[in-house]
Computed example of a mutant assay.
Amino acid sequence: MNLGEIVKSAHSGWRYVVLIMLLGAIFNALSGYFGKKPYTEGSRKLNVFTLISAHIQLVLGLAAYFINGWYNVSSAVAMGRYWKMEHISMMIFAIILITVGNARSKKVDSALMKHRTIALYFTLALIIIIVAIFTMVKADPSRTYMGLS
Rank of each mutant, 00 (worst) to 15 (best):
Y33I: 01
G101Y: 12
L62E: 04
I133T: 13
S31I: 05
Y33E: 06
R143G: 01
V131N: 08
G80S: 09
M146I: 14
M91E: 08
S89I: 13
V77G: 01
K37T: 05
Y16R: 03
L124K: 02
S142K: 13
F27M: 11
A139L: 04
F122R: 12
A78I: 13
M91I: 14
S74G: 05
K114Y: 08
A139M: 09
A103T: 15
I128F: 11
V59E: 01
E86W: 07
S9T: 05
A103K: 15
I129H: 03
E86S: 10
N68M: 05
W83C: 02
V100F: 12
M113W: 06
M21V: 02
A64W: 12
A10G: 01
L51N: 04
G147Q: 02
S110F: 10
K45Q: 14
I20Y: 00
I20L: 14
M136F: 00
K138Q: 11
G147D: 00
V77E: 15
M146V: 14
G101W: 13
Y16P: 02
G42Y: 03
E5N: 06
G4K: 07
L112H: 10
A111N: 15
T123E: 14
E86Y: 13
Y65P: 06
I129D: 07
P141G: 02
S31Q: 13
V17T: 11
Y16C: 03
I26C: 07
A119D: 11
G101P: 09
Y71D: 14
N2S: 10
M91W: 11
G42L: 01
G13F: 09
Y145P: 00
G101S: 12
T50C: 05
Y82W: 12
A63L: 13
D109I: 14
A132P: 02
A54P: 00
H115S: 11
T99K: 07
G80I: 04
I67E: 01
F122H: 11
S9R: 09
R81C: 09
L19T: 06
N102P: 09
K45W: 13
T135L: 05
A111V: 02
D109P: 03
I26N: 05
K36G: 00
Y65D: 03
H11E: 05
V48W: 13
M90L: 15
H87I: 02
G69K: 03
R44P: 01
V73H: 00
E5R: 00
V7K: 00
T123M: 07
K138F: 08
F93G: 14
A103I: 14
K138V: 06
N102F: 15
I92G: 08
I92D: 07
M21I: 01
G147R: 02
N72H: 08
G13Q: 07
I92H: 02
M91Q: 15
K36F: 06
F49A: 05
G80W: 10
R143T: 13
K107V: 10
A111D: 15
F122E: 09
A111C: 09
N2R: 05
K45S: 08
K84D: 12
S74C: 04
E5F: 08
L60D: 08
K84P: 05
R116S: 10
K138L: 10
M1T: 00
K106C: 10
S31L: 05
M90E: 13
H87W: 09
I127F: 07
V100P: 14
I118N: 11
M1C: 04
T144L: 04
F122W: 07
K37S: 11
S142G: 03
L112S: 15
S53N: 09
P38K: 06
